[in-house]
Design a protein around this nucleic acid. Structure first.
Lengths: 342, 342
DNA sequence: CTGAAAGCGCTAACAC
DNA sequence: GTGTTAGCGCTTTCAG
């Protein structure tokens, strides 16, 4: 900037004015400065600007895994909002590792991001206390912060969605509905289990622990669980999958169990998946759809409200889910004999 | 830092030493400083650090769309590499918009990122010249930079992959193979068309323009194109899809044309898709698989080599593709009559 | 082993 | 309209 000033024969401050298109610069002077800028290939150093101004015009986003469709839709929405507010975006995946989440968040804070959007992996956010003290704004998305951490939160209505999905199967005549969910330590998984139980209770159906399996959705485990469920006495006639990955692994397992490639219809079992996925339409899989883009947009809106000075008490928003019937969830119950015969 | 120094009764520099765990500080003094740090909730301001040191320990990544599986796998790989090098990651999607690409890149440069990884949307990268002058390192991924821009580039072997896919169909007896690709202005689409033509030529088959359709993979267009192809006299017996989105839209269109939900087998047409996708296994779709994670890893490795002082001439790497047979690409040709009868 | 001074590149506040 | 001065919070350099 000094060089530009010298080259244009003006003071440093005038260059600064031109660079930031501040008003009150003579048009002739401005164009002379502009020429010097171009000649020297000058670009403002935002690091210095940030240091001086105290605001970085950047936000940090920590999600669970970029490569997951749910999270990448969320990012996309946040990205658009950030762009709209002239903000740059730091991103990082926690990979369901609380330490990695914390390291990322603290690294973002050290960079003095204006705000954070966090899909938490951990359940203790005490490490954020000094940051909040220092005035950082954070919004939690998809999962709430750990106890004792007060911050805006945007969630999906996990329990409600699971209740709807389960009720849908019950309405189609099912009485023995299995639930295959994620690890019960994950907030969303626990909530969905809760919704499943509520729906059973509301219909006066018993809760059978033998029909519930919770764990990470890795292929061999899902396959084994499914086989066990289906070969037990009095097997389920319907399945509620607790998350997208599990739905897909159930489809794979069913396809290999029945040898049919028409996975959607495999075994005549009814199936409702939690979370929509690409090609669910083609496969005819009924799902309880979340809206990750809306989740991201809402979280970003909340954050930018805070950044523009909003001091309301923190809010907790629950986004509705939507049941999308596509065939697999509307099949009537078949006895094991019917199924093997088909 | 000043406050910490005062609280600990030491000089500012000593605090700096402790914060950066520099050697040569008395253990007792260090612990006194550490206590003050904790008491005051002090966190180093990396903006100032960056300004002083000149290196930001951050890189910028511009891709086409985070919400696309190919790109999100690429991000994931870059993210891991960045973490490994203690680097933070700015990300942004260009959405296939050259102006947005440029704005993002320049914003990253203004933040003085140490390096850039770019999946270019535009074909003119002249705007980078002053940045290169200033010493920034950039690696292009998936598509090469515009003419006149010298930089490391990592690509998939698009032509080779399309050649392999086409040859595979030819080897299974097909003589009339349609190619449905992306907009011909996109590098990868043009390369894949080239590979398709090479394979035809190598087999002594004619190139029939009536069998080639290039354009954005939006659902109605793909459906219309497909209908036109299949109802023309002497229709194709096989399809090569030029990209993942098109493959999926073809499956949807075929399913609605034939009314079958078993999309993989729809109409008895053979199908090979370029780029793998989730559930292709279940649907039995043969694809030419790329390796987006490897693409990202390679680009990041190249970038970090440059950042650590490597001054070799720029390289251009082509990553191999892999044909994954799953059924749809191994079907023999059927006449139209056979197909309607089945 | 510790400290003082200079300055990274910019903007805010105030003169002229 | 334009210029001057101070200082954002840190690291570098050099002196004790």
């Amino acid at each position: 900037m000094n060089d530009v000033a010298a080259a244009a024969g003006v003071a440093l401050k005038t260059v600064s004015r031109v660079v930031n298109s501040e008003p009150g610069v003579n048009a002739v002077t401005a164009s002379r400065v502009q020429a010097a800028i171009e000649r020297l290939g000058y670009r403002r150093n935002d690091s210095a600007r940030i240091l001086r101004r105290g605001r970085t015009a950047s936000i940090g986003l920590v999600i669970e895994d970029v490569a997951d469709a749910f999270h990448s839709s969320l990012i996309r929405a946040v990205e658009d909002a950030a762009l709209h507010h002239g903000c740059l975006l730091f991103t990082g995946s926690s990979r369901e590792d609380a330490a990695r989440e914390r390291d990322l968040v603290l690294a973002f804070c050290a960079r003095r991001v204006d705000g954070l959007i966090i899909v938490p992996a951990g359940s203790d956010h005490g490490y954020l206390a000094p940051e909040f003290e220092a005035g950082i704004k954070a919004v939690f998305a998809d999962r709430p912060p750990g106890a004792g951490c007060e911050a805006d939160t945007v969630l999906c209505d996990n329990a409600g969605g699971a209740r709807t999905g389960t009720a849908h199967l019950i309405a189609h005549g099912h009485r023995r509905i299995a639930f295959l969910g994620g690890s019960p330590r994950i907030f969303t998984a626990a909530e969905r289990l809760r919704g499943y139980r509520q729906a059973l209770a509301a219909a006066g159906l018993p809760y059978d622990e033998g029909l519930v399996v919770m764990g990470a959705p890795d292929p061999p485990r899902v396959g084994a669980d499914l086989t066990r469920l289906l070969t037990a006495p009095d097997p389920p006639t319907a399945l509620l999958a607790g998350n997208g990955r599990t739905t897909v692994e159930i489809l794979r397992a069913l396809a290999s169990l029945t040898g049919s490639s028409d996975a959607g219809a495999a075994g005549g079992l009814a199936l409702v998946g939690f979370d929509d996925f690409e090609l669910a339409d083609l496969l005819g899989v009924t799902v309880v759809a979340q809206d990750p883009a809306r989740l991201g947009r809402t979280a970003a809106d909340l954050l930018f409200m805070r950044l523009s000075g909003d001091e309301e008490p923190t809010s907790r928003i629950e986004l509705a889910t939507r049941l999308v019937p596509r065939g697999s969830g509307e099949r009537p119950p078949l006895s094991l004999r019917d199924r093997t015969a088909s």
